[in-house]
């Protein structure tokens, strides 16, 4: 039996196709999100990769910011529940999830069965999100996937104190013009992202294992900064961008199986 999870975020679209609730046979990501052609394209891509059709899916569940606009879905579940489901499947020892996506930062605490015990989300503000890193990468002329390498070479992380993306951008520009090394500025940017996420984690209650997911988890500079702030190791979920889509696909499987019992 095949089930599908579709996660439409603010800046990316993700699809997971699951076979019998355990095998991830497709996990596709396109870096454009809700309101774009991304959702349709990622869906087609995932299906064609495994040679399946939409009709082959026993159930499709949508999640993410754009979850209510996915016509193909039979149901929608919030990304917090899906993230918890997906991460727990991959890392059953997870107790705290830190999820940083395009425009949301979330801390989710799990109980021993993987259920959501508590969660906190950021305020309506881009600081500390993927969008914040996008802006900084543009200003610094460093690709997102190179930021972690730069960070690793930092000798004296700069301070990026502004809590607002717009002000932080001008702060970074003035540091650049004062000749501060990009490596140090990037380490400062990562610390600023980490401090936002950790604020939510502290509210939630910090308990190991701590797992990071969401697109920003691919930036190891952020992961290191979070680990340093929490003074605890942080595990990056395998393929961290698709964990919510995976969770949705697992929910879909469980619902079909539940209905068949």
């Amino acid at each position: 039996m095949f089930t599908m999870g579709i996660d439409i975020g603010s800046s990316s679209s993700k699809v997971v196709i699951l076979e019998d609730g355990v095998n991830i046979i497709a996990g596709e990501v396109i870096q454009i999100g809700t309101g774009s052609t991304g959702p349709k394209r990622v869906l087609d891509e995932a299906l064609s990769k495994v040679g399946l059709k939409l009709e082959d899916m026993a159930k499709i569940i949508a999640t993410g910011y754009g979850r209510s606009s996915v016509e193909e879905a039979h149901k929608q579940i919030s990304e917090i529940s899906c993230q918890a489901k997906g991460v727990f499947f991959l890392v059953p020892s997870a107790k705290l999830i830190i999820d940083i996506g395009g425009q949301d930062v979330k801390a989710i605490r799990l109980d021993s069965k993987g259920g959501v015990k508590q969660f906190f989300m950021n305020d309506k503000c881009a600081a500390g999100t993927g969008r914040f890193l996008d802006v900084m990468s543009r200003v610094l002329e460093v690709n997102l996937d190179e930021m972690a390498e730069y960070d690793a070479r930092a000798t004296e992380p700069a301070t990026v104190s502004s809590t607002c993306t717009v002000f932080a951008e001008s702060e970074v520009i003035s540091q650049l013009s004062n000749g501060v090394a990009k490596e140090n500025i990037i380490a400062g940017v990562h610390q600023s992202v980490a401090s936002k996420a950790c604020g939510l984690a502290y509210r939630c209650g910090v308990e190991e294992d701590i797992v990071m997911c969401g697109g920003v988890a691919k930036d190891l500079g952020v992961v290191r900064a979070i680990s340093k702030e929490l003074k605890k190791p942080v595990i990056v979920a395998p393929n961290p961008q698709i964990t919510a889509a995976l969770g949705a696909a697992i929910f879909a499987f469980e619902e079909v199986r539940g209905a068949n019992i």
């Binding site: 910011y65 579940i77 919030s78 990304e79 917090i80 529940s81 949301d104 259920g115 959501v116 015990k117 969660f119 989300m121 309506k124």
Partner: peptide, 17 residues
């Protein structure tokens, strides 16, 4: 505010929780 997406996500997640 005129955008309630965040509130929707929080409330929906809470009801699922």
């Amino acid at each position: 505010t005129t955008s309630f997406e965040q509130t929707k996500t929080r409330v929906q997640s809470f009801s699922e929780m």
